[in-house]
């Protein structure tokens, strides 16, 4: 199933290890796509932080900071990368029930996300 985007244990592992491997990619000035999480009145703050920690492998402090940004500003860029990478993350976020969209990074004002890069790189499940 080359198109499978189902969440599985292997996806989780992939995201964990991917975070460490992706440092050189982060330095690239033109990371072209962002993953945006939008605020909604239903999702629990604790749950959103849990998803950021467990799926992206973000430390608690960073996960909470991004979660509060979603809550207060209405949206936050939580990861960046190639179109394929952020699309894969978006489907995973939809699996968790978070309201996620992807968008082309505009003029380099992408805020905090550049630093985070896209976890799970090179582990793409799509052929």
């Amino acid at each position: 199933m080359t198109l499978s985007v189902a969440l599985g244990p292997d996806t989780q592992e992939g995201t964990r290890t991917g975070t460490a491997e992706s440092t050189d990619f982060l330095a690239a000035p033109d990371i072209p796509w962002n993953l945006v999480i939008w605020n909604d009145p239903v999702n629990l703050m604790s749950y959103v932080s849990y998803v950021f920690q467990s799926y992206f492998g973000y430390p608690e402090s960073k996960a909470n900071k991004l979660m509060m940004e979603v809550h207060k500003k209405g949206r936050s860029i939580v990861a960046s990368g190639s179109k394929e990478q952020v699309e894969r993350h978006a489907v995973a976020m939809h699996g968790f029930g978070l309201w996620a969209t992807v968008e082309k990074a505009s003029g380099g004002s992408g805020g905090n996300a550049g630093k985070s890069g896209g976890p799970g790189q090179g582990k793409g499940k799509r052929g």
Partner: peptide
Amino acid sequence: PNVMKNDDGASLEFRQLTERSL
């Protein structure tokens, strides 16, 4: 949900590939 905020066409294309497995 749609995967793109302001692009229904691209969102629909994405749905064709991913909605069933989601």
